[in-house]
Amino acid sequence: MKSKLASRNRMIGLLFVSPWIIGFLVFTALPLLYSLYLSFHRVKITTSGIRTEFVKFGNYQFAFTGDSIFMDRLTQYIEEMVISVPIIIVFSLIIALLLNQKVKFRSFFRTVFFLPVIIASGPVIKELMDQGVTTIPSIEQYAIYQMLNANPEGIFNGMLLYLIKNLIVILWFSGVQILIFLAALQKMDQQTYEAAKIDGASNWEMFWKVTLPSITPMIIVNTIYTIVMFSIFSLNPIIEHIQKNMFKVDTGFGYASALSWIYFLIIAIALALTVGAMSFKGKSKYS
């Protein structure tokens, strides 16, 4: 009797989840496979339908050897991600720590720091960038900026210039992360702090030895979130390039699919590397 009830329950559970399963198969799994299939083909759209021609790794080869724009954009994207993500994480942690103090108007500040999440769509950010308001006000007058601007070729200089020019946009991406950190900080056990205090730990030591290790999981979550959001933002140069190739006659859907798969793999590698490094470091601390 009981096992019958349990199996009935199982069926109902599956029934509840079934819309997602169907959706996953139809709108995600199948398209994923199909775009993988297309990426190995040259795709032509004719009046009678789509015609494909197998080209082996041709599309991939072209992406890495023939398409200089793509390689440029790819290195640019990786550079930008390497600077932006750590800045977003550290910045949002600092803001969360500040807000976690006994400050008045906490909810007001939270409202301010979350606001960009609401309004930051691609076109809005683009308008603001065109106006030059995403940089630190009147930065052009400083010597450092002029020095960097005089020689924008080097990787390091380029990165710094990007940072200066887009600082506000980078910071604008931190709204959700601040709230995640803040929620984690407020759930911390106060007794640990009291015990550490009795043992004579300073605030500085407590941050490094108590706070930071216990929010490591949140740092990982935030890093994943930041990388994903940064990668799918519509102003991202690679995304633009993929879209352009999609509707070009000589490249078309096949090549665009290959590009999007390369892009997907790079995001996955970036995620695996950062998350792997962080959880490895976190574990070695405890052992």
């Binding site: 709108f27 995600t28 990668s231 999007s260 997907f264 995620l271």
Partner: peptide, 25 residues
């Protein structure tokens, strides 16, 4: 139910798939 864990992981996995990959199909 059977496979609940798998489904859970797949749900999380859909978050990191960039929309560009499924866009063309």
């Amino acid at each position: 139910f059977k496979g609940k864990k798998v489904i859970f992981i797949l749900v999380l996995a859909t978050f990191i798939i960039p929309p560009q990959v499924t866009l063309i199909p």
